[in-house]
């Protein structure tokens, strides 16, 4: 039976998300972001053990990933990706257009030279993405017509759809993005990654909870949250969820979070 699974890996500050889709015994893998440093390699260790458990012989199975996506060019999302692509390989490396200099240059230089990356290009809404196994993927944001000075607003907002269920991956997209695309959130959404780690800027425009008002009540919410160096999610965002009796899960409390669907029903698993 076909399935789609998304795991928010607890990497402390930042995001790292493992995606899997399965159909007919074949599993496809994707990765969004990492926050690994030389000394703190949370997503690397998770993935290493995960693929070990799945009895994947990394050396003979490279590239492991169908795609690796850098949601936006902030280092708490992109550092560690080079090491992961070196280790596991990827057919595609995707990213948004960005003006942010430093980390992205390092990744592009590597992508232009390495045999561990099949192809790489910038994503925007005009691009048609290949299927991710049995799931369809599409880009809700950004458009092709500009690059924001606020790097969070260059975040790739990705939808994955399996049959009657959609999952939305949001990067750190903030209110300016949601004011434009919130009405496009599919009614079939059953998992929504809360943008920007649950910050006020990712959810509120003044006192209006932009994406929240368009996100179906039946959608489970996942937050890549952290305590250090300061706390996310913001209390106002948590109050919003609590006051509206919305189910949400956060990596700083529940550790790794897995949301799974067979295209009809969804399920959530967590460690704590």
């Amino acid at each position: 039976m076909a399935s789609l699974k998304v795991t928010l890996i607890n990497v402390g500050w930042g995001d790292s998300i493992l995606l899997e889709s399965e159909d007919g015994g074949t599993t496809h893998y994707g990765l969004i972001d990492s926050n690994d440093t030389s000394t703190l390699r949370s997503s690397y260790i998770f993935l290493k053990r995960y693929f070990e458990k799945a009895e994947i012989d990394i050396g003979n199975s490279k590239p492991i990933f169908q795609f690796v996506l850098l949601s936006h060019a902030h280092t708490d999302h992109g550092q560690g990706l080079k090491a992961l692509m070196r280790e596991f390989g990827t057919e595609n490396f995707w990213y948004p257009k960005s003006l942010r200099q430093g980390m992205l240059g390092n990744l592009l230089r590597y992508a232009n030279r390495s045999t561990n990356i099949g192809w790489h290009e910038a994503l925007h809404t005009s691009k048609q993405l290949p299927n991710f196994g049995p799931a369809q993927m599409s880009v809700l944001w950004p458009h092709d017509n500009g690059i924001s000075n606020n790097e969070n607003n260059n975040s790739v907002v990705l939808t994955l759809r399996l049959d009657r269920v959609s999952f939305i991956m949001t990067g750190d997209a903030e209110k300016d993005v949601w004011l434009q695309i919130a009405p496009l959130i599919p009614r079939s959404t059953r998992f929504f990654k809360v943008p920007h780690h649950g910050s006020v800027n990712g959810t509120f425009d003044n006192n209006t909870a932009v994406w929240f008002n368009h996100c179906p009540r039946s959608a489970k919410l996942g937050v890549s949250s952290h305590i250090r160096p300061f706390e996310h999610p913001d209390q106002e965002v948590i109050d919003l969820f609590d006051n509206n009796n919305r189910r949400y899960y956060r990596t700083d409390r529940h550790y790794h979070l897995t949301f799974e669907t067979n295209g009809r029903r969804t399920n959530v698993m967590y460690w704590h």
């Binding site: 440093t37 030389s38 280092t75 708490d76 992109g78 550092q79 080079k82 090491a83 070196r86 430093g102 980390m103 390092n106 590597y110 030279r113 390495s114 045999t115 561990n116």
Partner: peptide, 12 residues
């Protein structure tokens, strides 16, 4: 050699 053991990376 891009895929050899030593490489440049970024940290924060």
């Amino acid at each position: 050699d891009s895929d050899e053991g030593i490489y440049v990376d970024t940290n924060d």
